[in-house]
Design a protein around this nucleic acid. Structure first.
Lengths: 241, 241
DNA sequence: CCAAAAGTGTTCCGGATACACCCATGG
DNA sequence: CCATGGGTGTATCCGGAACACTTTTGG
């Protein structure tokens, strides 16, 4: 009988993207049981998975516990299983306190997800974390485990994903949004300038982006028209192709 | 202390693609310790992962043990962790014999890989499997666990992958190949007809596909020119973009 | 000379790019 | 009236798609 096969705990970690009209942000949580001044107090939201729980379900659960939202768009992108990914003494100590002692190794399945940043998150009844905060991509702190690597990998994957299914960007915007918001979002994602006139034309060809009668109020310049994303039109289009 | 977190074995499974000038094939292995007439005697090559082994390394090891080839192109595409994926009594029985008793749950990390089908596989010293065989995609048998699902998922992913990095198709062809072989390969992957004249033009724009002086011999029709893939030219191009 | 596969050019369309000015609003 | 951001049109380029005949070779 072989005894050297891994027998391990498995977790899920979620990279939740949000867009604040300026840049992409990621939702981080502050760990319980950790020194307030610990430079690595922030981490990606995640959890060990339960018996009888699929990894996708575990990721959904983490997001629900975190935001109060069920059925968020969510995509698995990689399993991280380097043998030393949970070998830092500080990280082991935290695992011991948060879960149980003697977790000698931990592999994780990483997901990305998208969230309207203005949305009120149901974090009231969260005791699991001390705090939840949006953190701009450009200002990410050092995080425990390999969470920095996970975020890096998620960026590559989310760009690939958007190219094949551009619809997910609308998960990052409010229900009503202006062309200008959509424009800034695309620029943030692709990290380059996009000509605004060409962008208007591009949006005009998207039959699932509908102009509304409503316009901005109280702005000290010409008011922008609001648009909405029409999911049904999008699905019709997608299935007909 | 919480006790209901999963504590489990983890495996890797590999979907190895090969191309026989007609269609895509997948490399399947025949399980030891199983009735020769068992309809599910064929499965994807895979293995539990060891302590101190990353999943990527485990997948490389499986491929090396299977083919004798080190450093095959290989891409992780999904973790499969449905709680009931290893609940079939036959599958449990086989796990007991192949590894150890009391594996109650098993999650797997799936990879796809690409192999020149004509390549001699070093299967001589393999005692792990009774046999190894290429199986056309259109004739896949029922397989144990969720291996049929895994293959299905791999197809979606490999097509997505080729779109963003077409280079991997050359892993499926011999070192010297004709345009016609490349053409049939593209048609198989995309499962549609591709105009041959446009295809010639497309290949002509690929600066990393170089014509050789050599032509086919002994064919009873006009001999086709051989081409080769120039990895260096490809990498230069890729990094310059 | 016949069968079988290799190889070759032109036209057209649609989508992407480059580019600069007027419009509406609040202060 | 001015500062601020919203909104619009034209010309060009490039890649992809459609489409059919001639060439080479062995038998």
């Amino acid at each position: 009988m072989k005894t050297n096969f891994i027998h391990t705990y498995v977790s899920v970690d979620c990279v939740v993207f949000g867009f604040d009209d300026e840049q992409l942000n990621i939702l981080l949580v502050q760990r319980n049981n950790i020194d307030e001044n610990d430079p690595k107090r922030l981490k990606l939201p995640g959890s060990l998975i339960f018996d009888n729980e699929d990894v996708d379900d575990a990721a959904s659960r983490v997001l629900y516990e975190l935001t109060g939202i069920r059925r968020m768009t969510l995509k698995q992108f990689r399993c991280f299983a380097a043998p030393d990914r949970a070998s830092n003494p500080q990280d082991i100590k935290w695992l011991d306190q948060a879960y149980k002692p003697d977790i000698d190794r931990l592999i994780t399945v990483a997901y990305f997800s998208l969230c309207k940043i203005g949305r009120k998150l149901n974090v009231s009844n969260i005791t699991k974390y001390k705090a939840v905060e949006w953190c701009p991509l450009s200002e990410l702190p050092d995080m425990p485990f390999d969470h920095n690597k996970i975020v890096e990998a998620s960026l590559i994957d989310i760009r690939r994903w958007i190219e094949t299914d551009p619809v997910i960007v609308f998960d990052l915007l409010p229900q009503k949004f202006t062309i200008s918001q959509l424009h800034r979002l695309y620029e943030s994602i692709y990290n380059k300038k996009i000509d605004i006139r060409n962008f208007h034309k591009k949006v005009a060809t998207m039959t699932y982006v509908l102009p509304l009668a409503e316009k901005q109020l109280g702005v000290s310049h010409r008011a922008a028209r609001y648009y909405k994303f029409d999911k049904k039109a999008y699905n019709r289009l997608k299935t007909s192709i």
